[in-house]
Design a protein around this nucleic acid. Structure first.
Lengths: 148, 148
DNA sequence: TCTATAAAAGATAAATTTATCTTTTATAAA
DNA sequence: TTTATAAAAGATAAATTTATCTTTTATAGA
């Protein structure tokens, strides 16, 4: 559906947002660890998010990643856009170059319902809202550790 | 959403179904051409569909691919299952290994709506139904050719 | 039985995505 | 200003997906 890079990016952004508080910065090691993502790969992804002003970073000692107040309001689709682009929400389910109501693939109508629902899911949800859920303990951004 | 291989497979199956009539067989060249898919790759994909009994093939002269009456009734999700598997319809939107109502990711509910809609789209549609639409001329499985 | 035909099977290559490692740059504090 | 720290940037590697090419197998008809 969306790429692994994008999934890592969303989880990381939610984690950073969940720790939002004045002056707090998180480094890649912490972030990658908390969201169960490969560290170096996550670093690359956070670079992209920073360039798109979805999160903010600061180099040097006491540096790290954080999210600013105004950034918390952004919809998650902004992260998808930064990493994967918005083509998932536009493209034909059967891979036709052009597929629309006027030249539809045979699955167009049904597929569009799912595609729109997906877009809706990412569009209507803010980073703040998701972080809040994690802080409440009602949802999670890391994998369960199985006990023996 | 679904792989290119799977998209080619669905388009090819629909095309074969749209030409269904006693004794008619289509070869890979025709099929690949009609659905705008790479020929050799399409051949590989049709092998898989044949193994899963979604279409039927016959080697040798006057051989080729065709679909049998009983195969026409199958839902398109059978093709997805044969090529990509059903994991798209089960996996977490944020890539968590376990994500369910009891241990949800923060997007679980919204994402599940989209994921279920997608599954529904493929589950409720038969190959016959899609082929019919193509034969009616109300939908298409190939790319528009742009005129200059 | 021989020949031609078309798919199956197998091997390999190209492209993309995922992932890691090294070097450079920015920055805060001593 | 020097040093330590952490991200940015750049290079490279591994894995997966997409795609192609070659050889083998099945089959119909002459």
């Amino acid at each position: 559906m969306i790429s692994k890079a994008c999934q890592y990016g969303i989880r990381a952004a939610i984690f950073i947002a969940s720790r939002h508080s004045d002056g707090i910065k998180l480094n890649i090691k912490q972030i990658a660890c908390e969201v169960d993502a490969p560290e170096a790969f996550t670093a690359k992804i956070l670079q992209v998010l920073n360039k798109h002003h979805i999160i903010t970073s600061l180099k040097g000692p006491y540096g790290g990643f954080f999210i600013e107040e105004f950034q918390l309001e952004q919809p998650v689709i902004n992260i998808v856009n930064a990493i994967d682009g918005l083509s998932v929400f536009k493209e034909c389910g059967l891979g036709l170059k052009q597929c629309s109501a006027s030249h539809p693939c045979p699955m167009h109508d049904q597929y569009k319902i799912a595609r729109d629902a997906l877009q809706n899911a990412f569009q209507k949800t803010s980073i703040r809202h998701l972080a809040l859920q994690v802080n409440e303990g009602s949802s999670f951004i890391n994998n369960l550790v199985l006990k023996n």
